[in-house]
Design a protein around this nucleic acid. Structure first.
Lengths: 201, 201
DNA sequence: GTCTATACGCTGATAGAC
DNA sequence: GTCTATCAGCGTATAGAC
């Protein structure tokens, strides 16, 4: 382990302010589109002072990703392989919709990066996520083998859940125009119905 | 109507080369992330010569959007309100999957822009798309009223089709890592099954 | 129509005073 | 720890020769 100096109260507060500002700016403009000026301004801080805390732009971004990736994957980790299959999947769907409602910036932070080929999140995807994905896919496959949910391709099942739920955050600008601002209650009901019908044996 | 000089063969060829290059670059990096240097290089052209044809970066981008928006919306327009409802919807789903396979760059071009708040496509969305969306939603609602497909929220039905099908293009980088390169045959079968089960009365 | 040269603002990052 | 001043490089766009 690397030994690191403990951070002072001011340091902790400023790092938090910077990361909060960075989430706002990176999620809206992507890595390249975001500027340190914007982030510094949003954090009520001078640009050199920002750099004092994070060395460079990439470090801010990577730190931000690392900070959110665990929270981002939490609902997936919480699928209980010993639970009731349909309940577990519907609970997962509901939590993902909830995250699109409550954490749209985090969703767009990742979406921006993946649409552009995932240059800086590739390790996250190939590591943590890949392992979790394979594990979840295997659990779904077992449930299907046991006849407890209908047999479908488990990989595509996961993709479709991601796609349908994250869509409300990532493409929120489009939905705002077409349907207007929404609480996502309708979305949740629609998706629960969709996956219930698909997965009931 | 505005009277415009006819374009010479060279002009036509160069404008095509620029737009082809621009699709490649903008779809991968987004508007701000793309540079005129990249586009010019991809089009085998000097940067000033590129500007000779399009005046500025934004004009290239807007021209590119206008060029592709019709093709992009074609499958939606082709839904036949007098056809067999489930067939029409499944055909639409299949065509959208096909577009993710054959036109992933076009998909990402729009995805990039919408994730970032649709600053430059807002008019397209509020105009052409909004009208087409409302019309399609109304057709779906009528089919439900007539009991020919199951009753669900038609707006969310459209969103879920967009989300699930475009996901394979927009988040292709993630899928390549998790499942590996794919022909999308499995995706198509999965989605046909999904919407058949949901919509069969 | 196409090129070289260049202007010029913006952006990431550093130096150094306080 | 925070600031002002500043730099180097990139990126858009223009001028002007050919």
């Amino acid at each position: 382990m690397v030994k690191t100096k403990p951070l002072s109260r001011v340091q902790i507060r400023n790092r938090h302010a910077i990361l909060a500002a960075a989430l706002e700016v990176f999620s809206q403009h992507g890595f390249r589109g975001a500027t340190l000026d914007q982030i510094a301004k949003q954090a009520n801080m001078s640009k050199p002072n920002l750099i004092y805390y994070f060395a460079n732009k990439e470090t801010v971004f990577v730190t931000l990703l690392n900070q959110h990736v665990d929270a981002w994957l939490a609902p997936l980790r919480e699928i209980d392989q010993d639970g009731e299959p349909l309940d577990e999947i519907l609970t997962y769907v509901r939590r993902k919709v909830q995250m699109s409602r409550d954490m749209p910036r985090e969703s767009r932070l990742f979406a921006n990066e993946i649409v552009q080929g995932a240059p800086r999140v590739r390790e996250h995807l190939a590591g943590d996520l890949k392992q979790l994905f394979d594990q979840t896919s295997a659990v779904f496959a077992r449930w299907m083998d046991e006849g407890r949910i209908a047999r479908v391709d488990p990989d595509h099942l996961i993709y479709s859940i991601w796609a349908t739920t994250q869509h409300y955050a990532d493409f929120g600008a489009q939905i705002d125009i077409l349907t207007g601002p929404d609480t996502l209650d309708g979305a949740e009901a629609f998706l629960v119905n969709l996956y219930t019908k698909m997965l009931t044996p």
